[in-house]
């Protein structure tokens, strides 16, 4: 089994990229989320005006809402911080105009046990959707090359891809399954079809889809035996 570790700060960036196109107030969903080790929210794409500027610490704009419930989502299962900021996307509210997509960079995978590997995402690389579609995505090959080079410079590699489903659940579509290029990659799907974004991750091997747990905070070093 594989486990994908996607720290909350990166979870936020992925979701923000997928929400691109929503009204800024909806981006409050991203404010007030606790970040590991006090790391700020960093670049939050379309939400930069409303949810803290790039490089802001955890006491940034989002902290005004910090009194609200903070629901961590550590542990196995879909990463889904809830109860933060104004929260849900209102029913009927405008959805992201296009599918969002990008890549996950990590320092490979660590084998914890014979049957358990852990990949901790260290950076995410958003891409433009050249399909300009709310249903499909394609990416500019040069974006992929840039992401690959950036990951390589940091000593990492691309270990997966994410994209959003603007109108369907967080499960790979037949198109996703048919187009999945690498059985070793992690395929993250973010659904915007419900009242809150739902992020899940999968392996796709020979057309078979296997969900894997997503942790939004890294495992303790003592647990990982790194």
């Amino acid at each position: 089994m594989a486990v994908l570790v996607l720290p909350k700060v990166l979870w936020e960036r992925v979701v923000a990229h997928c929400l691109d196109g929503l009204p800024l107030e909806a981006c409050g969903l991203l404010a007030g989320v606790e970040t590991p080790g006090g790391v700020g929210p960093g670049a939050i794409g379309a939400c930069s005006e409303g949810a803290g500027s790039e490089g802001a610490g955890s006491e940034g704009a989002g902290s005004e809402r910090a009194g609200s419930e903070r629901a961590g989502s550590e542990g196995a299962g879909a990463a889904r911080p809830t109860g933060v900021g104004p929260g849900p996307i209102e029913a009927g509210e405008a959805r992201a105009a296009e599918v969002g997509a990008g890549w996950l960079g990590a320092n490979g995978e660590r084998r914890r046990h014979e049957d358990l590997t852990v990949a901790e995402v260290r950076e995410v690389y958003p891409a433009a959707n050249t399909a300009l579609s709310a249903r499909l995505y394609t990416v500019e090959p040069k974006d992929l090359l840039r992401a690959d080079r950036a990951a390589e410079r940091a000593g990492w590699s691309l270990i997966g891809v994410w994209h959003s489903h603007t109108h369907s659940p967080a499960y790979p579509s037949p198109t996703d399954i048919a187009a999945a290029p690498d059985p070793l990659w992690h395929y993250v799907v973010v659904s915007l079809s419900d009242t809150e974004p739902v992020l899940r991750s999968y392996r796709i091997v020979g057309g078979q889809v296997m969900e894997e747990p997503v942790l939004t905070r890294g495992l303790p070093a003592s647990e990982l035996n790194w």
Binding site: V99, L136, V139, L144, P172, D176, P181
Partner: peptide, 8 residues
């Protein structure tokens, strides 16, 4: 060489 990435 890099794989083409697409879906939806």
């Amino acid at each position: 060489l890099m794989p083409a990435v697409a879906g939806g």
